[in-house]
Design a protein around this nucleic acid. Structure first.
Lengths: 125, 125
DNA sequence: TCTTATATATGATATTATCATATATGTTCT
DNA sequence: AGAACATATATGATAATATCATATATAAGA
């Protein structure tokens, strides 16, 4: 019981969890680091469920191990050093290949909401 | 590596996993049993990712333990006995309360696809 | 009889996410 | 100066979720 998001998606073996593709999408637009990416997740629409910080950092490292991104320390600017990630060609391919799955889920969710609306109206509530 | 779906959603503590709300939705429309629900998942749009059979059976049992559904054996008709599930009031409430989260995810996915389309067009691909 | 579809179930394991905690830099307030 | 806070990353232990491998059993069809 912790008021977090909802569930696996059985992505066993994908290696980058639920949030991975989103991070890959962000990094594809602009090289970025963990702390900033956390922020971007919220701006993107993650409100009720926002992944844990440690999850984000760990997924970034996983993605690097898988060769989907590379990282380098950025000492410039204020504050502590930032580990800045950049997408690789392999990362772009991965992103491309995950789109079909995302599309399916988007459709399933849309259909869920439509169906719910119907039974909510007709229902003995 | 198993070609399955994609990842957790950090639903720690929800107790009914990713597929739970869908099962609850189906059962709310019509009492049903595990084997049939598997079928309905496919009809609903689960193709690239379809949850494992054992996952479905286990989630149904969890939902019963949580008081979201009740079950009874149905001996009528052909074939082996079926454990038929019916939604409870608590189950309906649970379904209601999970809608906000589903809506957020649907929006996030939609935005993912829109953003991807943009960077795909403008991208050095 | 053999195969297939129907139907449920469980113990072991793999995968993913969070929790608790640690470290460190730089800014702002008092 | 000292305290508090925002920024920034990291890891070991633990919790939650999903699958794998396997077992059982009924009935229909070839």
């Amino acid at each position: 019981m912790n008021g977090c998001g909802r569930g696996f998606r059985g992505s066993h073996g994908m290696g980058i969890g639920f949030v991975g593709p989103f991070l890959l999408l962000f990094i594809s637009q602009k090289p970025s680091h963990g702390y900033e990416l956390m922020d971007e997740l919220e701006k993107f629409g993650f409100k009720i469920y926002i992944p844990d910080q440690t999850t984000v950092y760990k997924v970034l490292r996983s993605m690097e191990e898988m060769g989907l991104v590379t990282s380098a320390w950025d000492m410039e600017g204020a504050g502590p050093a930032r580990r800045v990630y950049r997408v690789t060609d392999k990362g772009k391919e991965f992103l491309d290949s995950s789109v079909a799955q995302i599309r399916e889920e988007e459709e399933i969710y849309k259909k869920f909401l439509d169906t719910y609306k119907k039974i909510e109206k007709g229902g003995e509530r």
